[in-house]
Write a protein that binds this DNA or RNA. Structure first.
Lengths: 101, 101
DNA sequence: TCTTAACATGCCTGTCTGGTTATATGCCTG
DNA sequence: CAGGCATATAACCAGACAGGCATGTTAAGA
């Protein structure tokens, strides 16, 4: 579990996931959209892949990456242990977040 | 959001939260139960406190720490953006299992 | 006031890690 | 099969960070 959090505890990896959340992407598309170097993107993708957050398939010269749901489900499960601590505050928080946007 | 994940991406901090999940604790109790040095515990508690995961109150010479729910609620909120990904996954799995039968 | 208890903080060090540059690998086209 | 893409990997560097030790701070008690 700590490994999953460590993987997400990095801003550029989170940005990669945000992009993949919309649709699967090739490495080059991520490089263009995130404005970071190709080796940096590849290294982050490797970390994400080894943690199970993404998977890749080969299409000609490209590697297409997409999100895998399991680690998210595991995080949800872990959070459930703490849910009783906050669900009495959840309504207030959501009102707050809704007011933000 | 990335800050919260980075805070949880450390094994000993996660262990501290596991202990505080049961009941609030003084620093000394955490030192005894986790078998780590007092400065190390205090440093982790500072990180957790500045990220909002815990708060402390003073009782005589002791500082009693307890979990605060808001960061957990924010993580839940963040995860909800990805929930549909594994909802679809579970739906697909169920259809798969149904077809097996 | 002096001492002790319970924590917090500063400093130092070794380790880990994210980024860059350079290079290797695999695929496709001519 | 030569050459160009798309991506992965290797080697290196600089900054971040966890842990240990020593010390500062505050409160309680004699």
């Amino acid at each position: 579990m700590v490994g999953a959090f460590a993987v997400l505890g990095e801003a550029n990896r989170l940005r990669i996931l945000e992009h993949l959340r919309g649709s699967e992407c090739s490495v080059g598309e991520l490089v263009d959209r995130l404005g970071m170097s190709q080796p940096a993107v590849s290294k982050h993708l490797r970390v994400l892949r080894e943690a199970g957050f993404v998977s890749s398939r080969i299409a000609a010269q490209q590697r297409i990456y997409r999100i895998e749901p399991e680690p998210f489900a595991e995080m949800e499960h872990w959070l459930a242990q703490y849910r009783r601590l906050w669900d009495r505050h959840l309504d207030a928080l959501e009102r707050h977040l809704d007011n933000q946007e």
